[in-house]
Simulated assay, not measured.
Amino acid sequence: MNINLTKETEDALSSIAKKHNKTVDYLVQEAISNFLEDFEDIEDALKGQKCRLDGDKGIKANEFYKQLGI
């Protein structure tokens, strides 16, 4: 995959990579991975919100914690 970055973005990534002893590729892969995880979390939250707005009462907190094994 190829991406086009501005010179400023490329310089910033290079600087951060050097400062933290990482590669630019590593930083970009981590950023994309984190974005995808966050995006999935947001989608799940929106689905839950829709269910709630559609009248789903959900479960009690103690039942939720029990399901989590807490």
Rank of each mutant, 00 (worst) to 15 (best):
K66H: 11
E8S: 13
L13S: 03
N4V: 15
Q29S: 07
I42F: 05
L36D: 11
Y65T: 01
D44C: 05
G55E: 02
F35W: 05
I32A: 06
L36H: 08
M1Q: 12
K60Y: 13
L36R: 13
T9K: 12
K18I: 14
Q49W: 00
D44Q: 13
G55I: 03
D56I: 03
F35M: 03
F64V: 04
E8I: 04
K47N: 09
I70F: 15
C51Y: 07
V28Q: 02
L36N: 09
L46D: 01
I70N: 06
G55R: 01
N4K: 15
A17K: 07
L36M: 07
I59W: 07
C51R: 10
Q29L: 04
A17P: 04
I70S: 03
F64S: 05
L53W: 03
K50L: 12
E10V: 02
N21T: 06
N34L: 10
A61F: 15
E43A: 09
R52Y: 13
K57C: 14
D56A: 09
E37W: 01
D11W: 01
Y26S: 09
N4F: 14
K60D: 13
T23K: 09
I59T: 11
S33W: 01
N2F: 04
A17W: 09
K22N: 06
T6Q: 12
F39E: 06
E43Q: 12
L53G: 04
N21D: 15
L5R: 08
L68A: 08
G48T: 02
T6W: 10
I32C: 02
G69T: 00
C51S: 10
A12T: 04
N62I: 00
T9V: 14
I59G: 07
E8Q: 14
A12H: 13
N34M: 09
L46V: 06
S15L: 13
K7T: 12
L13D: 02
E8T: 11
G58M: 15
A12D: 10
D56T: 03
K66L: 11
K60L: 12
I32M: 03
A31R: 00
I42G: 00
I32Y: 01
